[in-house]
Amino acid sequence: MHTLAHWFPLGWRHFLFGGICIGLGVSLLFALTGFIGGISSTYSAALSWLSTFPYFHREALVSKRSWLMMYALGLFAGAVLFTFTLGHGHAFITRVPLWRLFAGGILAGFGARMSGGCTSGHGICGVASGQLPSILAVLIFLTTAILTAHLVRALGGF
């Protein structure tokens, strides 16, 4: 028998309330500025300062890089705010090996830019506006990641 505790061994409220909080952030951005708030664009925005390559100096990117950097700064600030309020000042340090954090980042950064969105751009903004390409992208990255995770476990990884 599968109970709530089986599917949610760490509880469910903080997941739901955290998700709603994320959605309120994206909604606030939309209400105040009309912008669609995916996150992977903030990496392109950062690259417009770090690289001289023409692709990172397209008008479409340069015109929004300032607010995207503030959006990214907010992500950091919001997490700091959580840590010193509901988080009781406790830091969390991951035990995932550093090479996996780096190599996974390269693949995810490449894939997100090729796909035109990530868990936020496709997963939240795209799904919320009922975009078929985004819904397909979400199904594909979830399926790829879940199948890979099970394959790696079967082969003795993790």
Binding site: I39, S40, T42, Y43, T94, V96, R100, L101, F102, A103, G104, G105, I106, L107, A108, G109, F110, G111, A112, R113, M114, S115, G116, C118, T119, S120, H122, P133, L136, A137, V138, I140, F141, L142, T143, T144, A145, I146, T148, A149, V152
Partner: peptide, 19 residues
């Protein structure tokens, strides 16, 4: 859009981290 999503998923499962 779809190939990129699969590459994204393969990186996500390696690190457990998205952007």
């Amino acid at each position: 859009t779809l190939i990129g999503a699969a590459i994204f998923g393969s990186g996500w499962v390696l690190s457990g981290v998205c952007p």
